[in-house]
Design a protein around this nucleic acid. Structure first.
Length: 751
DNA sequence: GCAAGGTC
């Protein structure tokens, strides 16, 4: 049997469908889908089975003896043994049983570095049961009949060096990440769920955010002034113009000009021109995420939706670096899918073109094609946001075949009492690709038809007080773009890294803002372990991986070097341990300050009770016992916003996998809570005190009889009876008896 | 309980 192994189930299914002469048979092998078919007949008959993995099916970790953070020093992780264990047992079992049957194995995982490693992982498992089985490797960039048939007709060799390169990344990430995470968490005294993570990708990303916040903090705004006028032409049409000194840095200077301005303006110069906007390039993951982000979807949400559209066959694979359609993709056929349906107008317009020439982006890779719509969806079949994403992908796909959009531009130079003013106008002449892709379209800025020498009336003049703004915080889409530029993370992980920073309470808000904890962690790392805070670590890793892949250097050599570097970092850390502990804890303390106590004026802090539950307490305790409650679960983030009534910082609660909950001012929240409690009690009709035994809940005739036998005939008698004794005599639980007694006392109010 | 990378 010929065994073909792909990276994911859907690839297995589609490859089997392409290669099988008749439709393949789906079978389950230890809970995993396998697609079987036969090619040839008689002597040359060959049985084939295609199975899909689920990405990595084995993972690396330290032996479990290293799990105890308190007992095993972080440094010990550097040279600790590294074990490989299955992370998907079902697939490992399936591979073993298929592997035994196989007389040939073809690795058909994705055409990239991780794909090579994933292929070798599978191969190693198969070799455990069938050591001598011959194997080869096919590489393809799109799952189309043409691409697949060509690839399988020309199998090549597995690239073990490339797989080693991938493996070195795994080891380096684990060793550095785990060791530094443990060190920083222990030094900060943040164990358990509250640990402080450090990693090759997340730390440089956090550093970007922290650095931007620092720039904002030291930013000193400069005041400046602008002068605008509103003009009217002979026909009564109006437009506005601005003084050609766009920013006056001296108020006096601006005022002088402003006072000079009279009632008349003369048009000195008209400059007409055209501006063309080229159509956008095909979507890769980053391009898609930032486009989706600009229409209001968060990166994580956009990817989740894209994933579901992909598994339902509506769009192609959403995790790709590629921005160039491969030759093997029949683009005309992909457009023809839309000849009917809501996009027919657009599809037909494209199909009328004599030639379809798509745009090309800068990145051309072999992993997957750019994201394109794979089949026709009906709006009714999709949820609102799914449709939004689907439509975005369809429109972007179309736009890559469309012509440029062309603007007519007009620049005016005007004179008012020898002061120069300018006005710019733009009018869309040809929609071009913007007809297909109408997102974030700039609007026309229309100016009236004018000629040089025209006189205009100044109908309004104004001088505006402004000041320069600090650099803006990063939005998530922007952050993902920067990460890509710096080589941080991959198409499949960048959005996850950002959401990791959110769930670890390193950042909050949108645009993104770091907590004080982040400042403290980054300060420490930058001082003593700068390598991990910079994108250069990834660059060096990439260079080394390339060398491993080219066979110029052994994986072990790279790992040894990396471990030596980390050991040096640790000797710095150990030398400065006291300082690190102090500065980390000072930074962490900042994030716990809520404001000032309304009773004594001291600081209110997030604290922990002896039992471990969290509350807001006064730092003047025990002299002051003011306190406010906090929710039991979730990370607590103190945000900048302050309550106008109580002056306390607002609080946000972050629960993994859930939307953050803005609790607001903890005091307002508590007052609100008390109010609703009171209302609820007021609304609850007071239960009337039962008059007779038989009116009690859960007392039937039989029980009433038993009670009577025990000498209990009235509710008063029941209320006064010894519950334990009574329970024994009538053989009923003490709890039940006690419940009766509370209702006999009309105890609803006492609760 | 630690990373980042696959996939769902």
């Amino acid at each position: 049997m010929h065994l073909i192994v792909t990276e994911k189930n859907i690839a297995a299914r589609r490859i089997a469908a392409i290669l099988a002469p008749k439709s393949p048979k789906k079978e389950r092998v230890s809970g995993v889908d396998v697609y079987r078919y036969e090619v040839g007949s008689g002597e040359s008959r060959q049985e084939t089975a295609v199975v899909g993995l689920s990405g990595h099916i084995v993972g690396i970790d330290f032996p479990k003896e290293y799990n105890n953070w308190q007992k095993i020093d972080a440094r010990a992780l550097i040279d600790a043994e590294i074990t490989t264990t299955p992370i998907n047992r079902k697939i490992v079992t399936a591979l073993k049983s298929l592997g035994k049957e196989a007389d040939r194995v073809t690795i058909a995982t994705d055409y990239d570095r991780e794909g090579e490693l994933i292929g070798v992982e599978a191969l190693n498992i198969i070799k455990q049961v069938n050591p001598k089985v011959p194997f080869d490797r096919v590489r393809y960039s799109a799952i189309t009949p043409k691409a697949i048939e060509t690839a399988f007709a020309n199998p090549t060799n597995v690239d073990f060096n490339l797989a080693d390169a991938g493996h070195s990344r795994q080891v380096i990430d684990l060793v550095w990440g785990a060791a530094l995470t443990r060190y920083i968490s222990l030094a900060a005294g943040r164990l358990g769920k509250m640990f402080l993570s450090v990693g090759r990708v997340q730390s440089p990303t956090l550093s970007l955010i922290v650095d931007r916040e620092k720039e904002r903090n030291i930013f000193v705004p400069t005041p400046y002034w602008e002068i605008h006028v509103e003009l009217e032409d002979a026909a009564g049409e109006t437009f506005s113009a601005q003084h050609s000194t766009r920013r006056f840095l001296e108020k006096e200077e601006a005022s002088k000009v402003f006072r000079k301005l009279g009632k008349k303006a003369e048009l000195k110069e008209i400059e007409k021109g055209t501006k063309t906007d080229q159509p956008p390039t095909p979507f890769n993951t980053t391009g898609f995420i930032s486009a989706a982000n600009s229409i209001g979807l968060s990166p994580v949400n956009a990817m989740r939706i894209a994933e579901s559209l992909y598994t339902n066959g509506y769009i192609s694979y959403p995790r790709t670096d590629n921005t160039v359609y491969p030759d093997t993709l029949d683009l005309r056929a992909q457009i023809e899918i839309f000849k009917e349906g809501p996009f027919r107008e657009y599809a037909n317009a494209l199909l009328e073109k004599p030639e379809l020439v798509p745009t090309r982006g800068k990145k051309e890779t072999t992993d997957h094609p750019p994201i394109f719509p794979a089949s026709l969806a009906k709006e009714a079949d999709l949820k609102e946001e799914e449709w939004k994403v689907y439509e975005l992908v369809v429109r972007r796909f179309f736009a890559t075949f469309a012509g440029p959009s062309i603007w007519e531009t007009m620049r005016l130079k005007l004179d008012i009492e020898e002061e120069e003013f300018r006005a710019n106008g733009a009018r869309l002449l040809e929609q071009g690709w913007r007809w297909y892709y109408p997102y974030n379209a700039p609007e026309d800025r229309l100016l009236p038809e004018l000629k040089e020498g025209d006189l205009l009336k100044v109908i309004k003049k104004e001088m505006l007080d402004k000041e320069t703004q600090p650099p803006g915080r990063y939005g998530q889409g922007r952050l993902i773009n920067i990460m890509e530029d710096l080589g941080l993370g991959t198409k499949a992980t960048r959005h996850e890294i950002i959401s990791k920073l959110y769930s670890r309470a390193y950042i909050h808000g949108n645009p993104v803002q770091p907590t004080n904890t982040s400042f403290a962690v980054m300060d420490t790392l930058e001082k003593y372990s700068p390598t991990i805070t910079k994108p250069d670590m990834t660059k060096l890793l990439e260079e080394n991986m390339d060398k491993i892949a080219e066979g110029k250097i052994k994986e072990d050599t790279v790992l040894d070097e990396s471990r030596d570097m980390l050991k040096q970092v640790f000797s710095e850390l150990d030398k400065n341990r006291d300082n690190i502990i102090e500065s980390l804890q000072a930074g962490l303390r900042e994030d716990k300050i809520i404001g000032n106590c309304s009773l004594c004026g001291n600081e209110l802090m997030i604290r922990r009770s002896k039992r471990g539950s969290r509350f807001i307490g006064c730092s003047n305790y025990p002299n002051c016992t003011f306190s406010l409650p906090l929710p039991k679960s979730g990370q607590i983030v103190v945000i900048d916003k302050q309550c106008e009534t109580h002056g306390l910082h607002h609080i946000r609660i972050i629960n993994q996998g859930k939307r953050p909950w803005d609790l607001g001012c903890p005091q307002c929240n508590f007052i609100e809570w008390q109010k609703t409690q009171q209302e609820e009690q007021a609304q609850q009709p007071k239960k009337e005190k039962p008059k007779f035994i038989k009116d009690l809940e859960g007392v039937g005739k039989a029980t009433a009889g038993k009670l009577e036998e025990a000498g209990i005939t009235s509710v008063e008698a029941l209320a006064e009876a010894d519950p334990v004794e009574l329970a024994k005599t009538i053989k009923i639980s003490v709890k039940k008896v006690k419940n009766w007694q509370t209702s006999c006392n009309g105890a609803v109010e006492d609760l």
